[in-house]
Design a protein around this nucleic acid. Structure first.
Lengths: 167, 167
DNA sequence: AAAATATATGTAGTCAACTACGTATATTTG
DNA sequence: CAAATATACGTAGTTGACTACATATATTTT
């Protein structure tokens, strides 16, 4: 039971991050190749607003699964580019309601064929024998059930009980 | 052929990154629960030096698959904690040779049981029907063969040829 | 052996997410 | 209805990787 084959799992976080970076970089290049100035990190927001046209900042953050400050940063960029616009909710002045501009809607139409290409290219990459997409979904579900830390605690407890007699 | 189910793939980069963050955070907690002050990001370096005791900065960077500036940053932290030490290579003065200190070696021995726990916990998470580890390895291989951008270019070329007659 | 090139390391700044904390408005409770 | 609490948003600073560039030493070419 050597230490050798632990290395893959133990360095998993790093590998996930680097894979993510690579995909984002390539995504950017693909948009560029179509003459579109669009960053992959903006996708979740744009895409969500395409289907839910008016949302507050926090609602949007929840929809895309980001912390709200990350969302605010992205919204700032998109607002500067006039892809989205926003204004106070008159019914609840704490809220800022966000929606696509006409320019934003046009951009989406322009991007749709590119999304097909990206999806096709990513699918080629991902559809190996063991499907990454499915694997991630399953792990995300497992995580929700119980995170790695909680699992480790249980394992430690089990170990302590087993080792008790030896002491 | 709606846009709906593209969203998963198109947001893949983000999902990978967030999974990575979560695992790192939990990793840190598990070390802490064992009273060990160790950050998961240090693992690749420590682990590599455990098996290849003396390496230059760039050699080490290549071994762990990092860019060298990232490696330098990590080495600085580890050197400050006296987990590693380093000095000029007398045979080639450009090189700085890096190795574990006694403290570093002792730390590894202390961490070995923790690595087992982390591995076990991560394995629980990962060993779903579709194995994430295998999926990542396969995608990494596919990436090496041809990245997502290159694949997209090929797809675009194919599309253009098909669409040419329409114009 | 001088010049050109290559390699090793280091520094500075970027990126895309995060947490922690502060402020403003709304809602609930005593 | 005033006080306490909760919610929404925003700012500041962190993290862990990166790229681009600068410098020092070594190697290769002419």
């Amino acid at each position: 039971m050597g230490v050798i084959d632990e290395s893959g799992v133990l360095a998993l976080a790093t590998r996930l991050q680097r894979l993510s970076e690579q995909m984002r970089k390539d995504g950017l290049l693909i948009y560029k190749a179509h003459g579109i100035d669009f960053e992959p990190k903006w996708f979740p927001i744009i895409y969500t607003l395409h289907f839910k046209p008016v949302l507050s900042v926090v609602e949007l953050a929840n929809e895309i699964g980001y912390a709200h400050p990350s969302t605010i940063t992205l919204l700032k960029e998109l607002e500067k580019l006039k892809i989205i616009k926003s204004g106070k909710d008159k019914a609840d002045e704490r809220k800022r309601l966000v929606q696509l501009t006409e320019k934003g809607k046009a951009l989406i139409e322009q991007m749709k064929p590119v999304w097909q290409i990206i999806t096709a290219a990513a699918t080629q990459l991902i559809d190996t024998k063991t499907n990454l997409m499915k694997a991630i979904e399953e792990v995300e579900q497992q995580m929700e059930l119980q995170g790695m830390y909680q699992r480790a605690l249980s394992l430690m407890a089990a170990n302590n009980i087993k080792n008790q007699p030896d002491k």
